[in-house]
Design a protein around this nucleic acid. Structure first.
Length: 479
RNA sequence: CGGGGUGUGGCUCAGUUUGGUAGAGUGCUUGGUUCGGGACCAAGAGGCCGGAGGUUCAAAUCCUCUCACUCCGACCA
């Protein structure tokens, strides 16, 4: 192995040449998805869907550990129901798909294919919440939603996408606010621990918050090219929907009150985040926690007696992991490239020479370094390398995030960075929509990502207008 | 929704300028030799050229309309 960084896969466009084309190449070549004849919709192929299943399992366990229960709501929303909350319908109406015909008859009321399910949950909450004893209600649903997008890209923006949407009702505003923040933390932990993606978290500005919400919180991972991806959001609704839907409960003091509401969601867009955060010119790199195949075993000289037997034995010893033994008759080199393209975190090579020495070879997808190990230490070495892959991915992503986060103290600095340096810009903000609009206008698309948690002010005046600053905001372009 | 690009065997594309009835590589199938970084030889199968209409003796090629994908904006998870 003279050059570990040599590009083996000619079919994938280099990231540095054309990031968008690289992305499209990877999702296709890694067999994550395919296009369908339905405009704006995509097919999840087995490997891509398996990633989503692992994400689901992981997140679902985190939700259930906190007491959330899964439910399933209808996929249609009658027009009158959607219109109950004014801001909400204004926000979503432009991207709704409508059903107007049932069978062969015109419907008396058209049905929206759900773009999100707040209204359906509220209609139901009205029926099941009567007493303070009925609260909190901690619901979640796994489903797909439809938003009639004008431009689509695999995983990042499709007309139909898969997600989970949590919807909760609480007795008090404090409790609902705490839930909103708690679920954002769940997302933050999930991104870091399971997807190996460190991210900035914080609150959305008024301009960027969810239609109908009082407060929106967000997790904003940065992709390899410095562009942001909204990775998940958590909303606090106050009692706005409760009032619009007339949801009330009788409190312990026998007074009638409105409950307070939250919702929060993560979608299949998170798969796009994985691809664009970790991938390289050889293809996908999957974090071990959600990789459909964590270890691929590739036998060398597999036709020679004893090799496949030994490889199978190794596979059995690693049964606590998701392991695949590829004994197809492709050449070993072909298999190496194939599984690198598909982002399998750890490759295990075993051939006659290794078997003679009671050894095998482990190769990390991140560094592609070969490590010769004794079969005596097999389990521990595999465990260590999987952990190492995860840590290296986190480390690499954190370095990228840090390296591409800049500070701007005035408008000239801001526009200069926006034009020349892809990434995040930390800058103080006066709180006005005018400054947000101006920045977006002048820079051609840089928007406020969030008012981040845990960052100190860097100045006293707004980087845009020079008036006294209220908040530090992280700005950037987004997918 | 505005601007660009592309639609030709499964995939990547040539052929379109100058109409003459479809080609390459790769993949696939079968047989053999190989096998530790995308192996080689041989023989095969597979496309009425995105769709509709028009011009013409003749259309992948020219004209009109349409659909899809893709990139760049605006909108959004």
């Amino acid at each position: 192995m003279a050059d570990n960084n040599k590009k083996m896969v000619e079919q994938i466009t280099s990231m540095d040449v054309d990031f968008a084309q690289w992305y499209t190449d990877v999702v296709k070549k890694a067999e994550l998805m395919d296009y369908s004849s339905v405009k704006g919709c995509m097919i999840f192929r087995p490997y891509g869907y398996a990633i989503w299943e692992n994400i689901q399992k992981d997140l679902d366990a985190r939700f259930k550990a906190l007491g959330h229960e899964n439910v399933y709501m209808p996929m249609f929303i009658p027009e009158s129901l959607l219109q109950r909350e004014k801001d909400h319908v204004e926000g979503f109406a432009p991207e709704c798909a409508w059903v107007t015909i049932g069978g062969e008859n015109q419907l008396s009321e058209k049905l929206c294919v759900r773009p999100t399910s707040e209204t359906l949950f509220c209609e139901h909450f009205k029926n099941v919440i009567h007493s303070y004893r009925d609260l909190p209600k901690l619901y979640n649903q796994w489903c797909s939603v439809v938003r009639w997008e004008k431009t689509t890209r695999p995983f990042l923006r499709t007309s139909e996408f898969l997600w989970q949407e949590g919807h909760t009702m609480h007795a008090t505003a404090e409790e609902a606010r705490a839930e909103t923040r708690r679920m954002l933390k769940v997302y933050e932990d999930f991104y870091l621990e399971s997807l190996a993606i460190p991210a900035i978290t914080g609150q959305k500005t008024e301009k960027e918050k969810f239609a109908g919400a009082e407060e929106t919180y967000t997790i904003e991972p940065m992709m390899h090219n410095g562009v942001a991806l909204q990775g998940g959001t958590s909303h606090y609704f106050g009692d706005g929907f409760a009032k619009a839907f007339d949801i009330t409960y009788t409190d312990a003091d026998n007074t009638v009150k409105y409950p307070h509401q939250t919702s929060w969601g993560v979608s299949t867009r998170s798969i796009g985040a994985i691809i664009m955060t970790h991938g390289d010119d050889n293809g996908l790199i999957l974090p071990p926690a959600i990789a459909p195949i964590q270890v691929v075993i590739i036998p060398a000289a597999q036709h020679k007696p004893g090799v496949l037997e030994k490889a199978t034995e190794v596979k059995d010893r690693l049964s606590k992991y998701r392991v695949k033994l590829d004994d197809s008759d492709q050449s070993a080199g072909w298999k190496f490239s194939q599984y690198e393209m598909k982002g399998v975190p750890v490759r295990l090579e075993i051939g006659p020479r290794d078997i003679e020495n009671n050894a095998c070879v482990l190769v990390s997808r991140v560094t592609r370094e070969k490590k010769f190990i004794s079969l005596d230490n097999l389990e521990a070495e595999v465990e260590a390398m999987l952990r190492q892959v995860h840590d290296e991915l986190v480390d690499r992503a954190a370095k990228n995030l840090a390296a591409k986060t800049y500070e701007a103290h005035n408008f000239e600095e801001f526009t200069d960075i926006a034009e020349h340096k892809p990434g995040y810009i930390k800058a103080m903000w006066c709180g006005s929509v005018e400054c947000e609009d101006k920045i977006k206008d002048v820079t051609g698309g840089v928007k406020s990502r969030c008012i981040p948690f845990g960052m100190e002010p860097i100045d006293t005046v707004c980087a845009c207008c020079g008036k006294p600053a209220k908040k530090l905001v992280v700005w950037g372009r987004q997918y």
